[in-house]
Nucleic acid binder design. Sequence first.
DNA 1: TTCCATTGAATGGGTGATCCATTTAATAAT
DNA 2: ATTATTAAATGGATCACCCATTCAATGGAA
Lengths: 288, 288
Amino acid sequence: MSTKSSPRTSARPRLSSLNRRERAPDHRAAGSPAALQFRPIHTRRAFEEICERIREQLVLGVLKPGDKLPAERDLARQLGVSRNVLREALRSLEMAGVLRLQKGVKGGAFIREGDTSRMNDVMRDMLSLGTISVRELSEARVHVLDLVVRLACANARAADLEALEANVDRTELATREGRLLDRVECSREFYKLLAAATGNKVIAMIMDSVTEIHMRFVYAKVASSGVAMARLAEKRRQFLAALRERNVSSATRLMRTHLESVQRMLEQDPGAMSLHVALADIQPGIRR
Amino acid sequence: MSTKSSPRTSARPRLSSLNRRERAPDHRAAGSPAALQFRPIHTRRAFEEICERIREQLVLGVLKPGDKLPAERDLARQLGVSRNVLREALRSLEMAGVLRLQKGVKGGAFIREGDTSRMNDVMRDMLSLGTISVRELSEARVHVLDLVVRLACANARAADLEALEANVDRTELATREGRLLDRVECSREFYKLLAAATGNKVIAMIMDSVTEIHMRFVYAKVASSGVAMARLAEKRRQFLAALRERNVSSATRLMRTHLESVQRMLEQDPGAMSLHVALADIQPGIRR
DNA sequence: TTCCATTGAATGGGTGATCCATTTAATAAT
DNA sequence: ATTATTAAATGGATCACCCATTCAATGGAA
């Protein structure tokens, strides 16, 4: 072994002696039972250990949103890893929405408020990879929206209703001025506000994740064909009225029939709609 | 500028001339309208560009599950970035469940089948960061489960019912043998099978994500107190019977009352239940 | 004093060379 | 034929740099 390698393995405290956490058991002396299953062992890598430790501090409450981690150089030294490896870990946590990295003096790695849009990215990747289908997503959206409408009827507060009303105002204006794509943007916002009106951030997050991609399809459709939903603002007003009255069955019915007509619109000339067109430009983003 | 820096900026084709995609518009000559909002510009970093390009190839169908990316050294050269930066991108994609990295000759970066468990990790981080509360998660779970039961009644196939039946058999056995923690594991599996019985992977994914953490709480409770749900297997049999009969109202009612009793169990001695206990040991994992 | 340009240090972003550990196919020895 | 050995390819990790951005401290001009 070369003399150069020795400092790497001994000169400073290393991350963990548990670097390889699990080993395949040695069954050589015990024969080979047929049903025996080996979980693939997977050598634990430094960056995983680092991510784990940081998440641990989060769960323990030692780290909270707004807190700053030590500078990369310091933290790397503390953990006994190279700066590059530490950066891999920080990158992963950044992409997971846990950290926000900021340059410059007074910069650093800050714990973020949770980024609820991360679920959208998961959904997008699942679609890209073909693990879920557009059909499944649409179907799920119908059911989730049904739930959201019921919860919004039960829990919407005055502020929620006002925000929705203002949204419909914008929708109406966009319609009058012929800004169809802006109107699609209003629709996206409408569903986001409706999701928020449930008063449950988990439900809202789920709702957003199944709505995001759907709206991309609508956008692509409107952009390419120029056709758009007729009497949209009017339908929204009716729905809002039902919501105000806490009339679950009416609100549900209105939303359901609306979804059906949107679906019919999307399914005209289905050949024009490709996953690729709808998903283009959405990239798991780092929102700062 | 030193002579050393010049090769970095000119010697080989760089990632993109669009390295900074969006710039804040220059409004100096136009005054300062009050409502003007600046989206924070954020210098696009190399690893983001790389992730985007790879995801692009996914959406376009050029890359499919099972495909292998070029070796790190080659890909880095092709993209005109250093190997370290490329690795940051690959790490991020690995943590996102898009890639699987494998060592050794014949190793490399392979496109994975989508990993539906990624959503669980998002949920976990949201809890750790305090963005969502346990209360919201439990409430969401009740509603989602309600939906899942309805869909399972409508769509469960013979194979699904068999798997559920086998699961209840195991539950019964574990009960008789007093293996309470194994029985919790059975419960986790039960809900996973039920989710799968909906026939919709999006719904299943959502269901799993709200169930995972909940089951950690149940596990921690059972492990610490030794108490456990009475007549569990029996209740499961009743529920399965309703499911077989496609009796939505009965199945829904049975599940709902069961959830309530579980909730009562969890809420005894609530002080003992901390987020930290329940979340310990769950780490966004790389399952190979 | 007040204001604005300059400077310099801290920080994340990025590079390239080098070595290690694991895996596997080709090769040699038995 | 079978079994060790070897060599090459690959991801994992380290080190020593340099660059670009940011911002507080500094200092000179108004």
